[in-house]
Design a protein around this nucleic acid. Sequence first.
DNA 1: TCCTTACGCTACGACCCGTAGCGTAACTGC
DNA 2: GCAGTTACGCTACGGGTCGTAGCGTAAGGA
Lengths: 208, 208
Amino acid sequence: MSATDPKATRTGRPRSTAADAAILDATRESLVDLGWSKLTMSDVATRAGVAKTTLYRRWAGKNELVVDAVAVLFDELELPDRGSLAADVQGVVLQFAALLERPEARTALMAVVAESTRDDSLRRRIRSAIVDRQKRLVLLGRERAQARGELRYEDDASAAARNADLIFDVIAGAVVHRTLVSAEPVDAEWASGFTSLLLLGLAGAQAG
Amino acid sequence: MSATDPKATRTGRPRSTAADAAILDATRESLVDLGWSKLTMSDVATRAGVAKTTLYRRWAGKNELVVDAVAVLFDELELPDRGSLAADVQGVVLQFAALLERPEARTALMAVVAESTRDDSLRRRIRSAIVDRQKRLVLLGRERAQARGELRYEDDASAAARNADLIFDVIAGAVVHRTLVSAEPVDAEWASGFTSLLLLGLAGAQAG
DNA sequence: TCCTTACGCTACGACCCGTAGCGTAACTGC
DNA sequence: GCAGTTACGCTACGGGTCGTAGCGTAAGGA
């Protein structure tokens, strides 16, 4: 993407985009059937109708492959304007929870995060492919709330950034923990209780 | 622990408790050196000075072994009375974050949770060995705050339970997400900001 | 002293890993 | 067209882990 930056003037046989898609599809399919731990490169290659060597020409290993395969799921996250900050928060919570109900996402997300604790390049990959895309929703939601007058515009830019990071960790962390650790459903009732807790906290911060 | 319930009248050579301890120590040591993915049963056996078959006589596999090895780390979590709910929350946040700084905890916790998404018995094991022990701190903290008059005693028992679950997921989820996903430090400043957000939310819930 | 269970050790088939080597396929520039 | 370059499929390989079986020995209880 950055180092060689080919794409244009490039000689030789081009990479098969069909193979790319087939491999990523096969990876998600294998995640559903086998889960993270039993997924193997050989199995993915077979499902994709592709030689195993073709996988290794594109991805360094299982970690990187799965991150890319799962990342597209997070592109489905959106933040339509629901008219109020409360509705926006509750909407994104339910949407994120629905994503975590999908078996490919459940089994892969925690696993790659676990791997990333010992692999900085993998952590950066996760950040750019998954985490940053989620965080944009928080920033967008804040902007909308500020435009509506529900939240104050903040003077200190770095304090505002820290605040956004905090809210992001609270929202994403709570949903992930509820879903994967406590292993209980994020239904409308829970989302409502969580949203009111968060918004009351934000309101209190605006006041005091 | 429950089915056969031996312990007392049991014939034959007893299990070596020294081997138990050596294996669990070796497991944590191997987690530090190799991380979850590269930890192998053979390596643990070698470090513990024990035959590989001895491991399999006690644990079904890597998942169960690591859960037991890491569970004791969570026994260190305590909740001394710091005089106010805010101080108690901030204290437990920092304590939990310090635990997640330890490499054996970081690499193991997310990994076993990931595995538990496809293994109900493992999930139950994690719940009883790790999660429930953390949740007790939340219940204890609430009791203290109620005794101090900082929080109201709740009438509806099931609503109170749901509320405690919510707060637990918010606290634990935010700290885990901050530490392992965002990969940024939980310092006193962050803990303070998080605590005030949470307490303002709770205060607002008491009022409205 | 018997009986029972745990331990250490060795060996094993099965599987996955990641790579090398080869011939072939596809696309670019001359 | 033709050479040059890169991608692909296939086969084969050494190295490693898995989980189990079989054996002789060690350590307790009746």
